[in-house]
């Protein structure tokens, strides 16, 4: 059983239209981390996600959402929804609370540039 297969990339594009306005408003949210803290490189911020979501965000046949190729606005909106507790989760709310707006944007940029087909196989 694969939940991934229910949400191939082209469906993200449809979601994009629905969420783009929310994204622009969501990013106004207060940055929870000290603004003076140096931000890690996008790949450094993104690699920790791989323990569940797969190396470079590519994963198949799993309950976890693949992140490779995800449109930036979808990634950002989803993370902000988790962080601001607009969306229920198991642990993603707690993970998202650890990141500033700038860090979430950096991760989004990293994942959108990863091939969404399984290049690691």
């Amino acid at each position: 059983m694969s939940i991934n297969h229910l949400l191939p990339n082209r469906h993200w594009l449809m979601l994009l239209a629905l969420t783009s306005t929310l994204v622009s408003s969501g990013l106004q949210a207060e940055t929870p981390i000290g603004a003076d803290a140096a931000i890690a490189a996008p790949e450094t911020l993104a690699h920790p996600c791989a323990g569940c979501h797969g190396t470079n965000g590519w994963i198949d046949d799993s309950a976890f959402m693949p992140l490779a190729g995800m449109p930036e606005s979808i990634f950002i909106e989803t993370m902000l929804d988790f962080r601001e507790e607009r969306r229920a989760s198991t642990l993603m709310g707690m993970v998202a609370q650890g990141y500033s707006d700038a860090e979430i944007q950096a991760m989004a940029r990293f994942f959108v540039n990863q091939p969404s087909e399984g290049t690691s196989r």
């Binding site: 981390i33 890690a40 450094t44 920790p48 323990g51 707690m94 993970v95 650890g98 990141y99």
Partner: peptide, 27 residues
């Protein structure tokens, strides 16, 4: 080397259908 970033997630089971966890971001 640039600034590092880490996460930890430990899932644990109270039963085979009862999951819980500890999760955090580290800097």
């Amino acid at each position: 080397p640039g600034p590092p970033s880490w996460q930890n997630t430990c899932y644990a089971l109270a039963g085979s259908e009862y999951g819980l966890f500890v999760a955090a971001v580290y800097r």
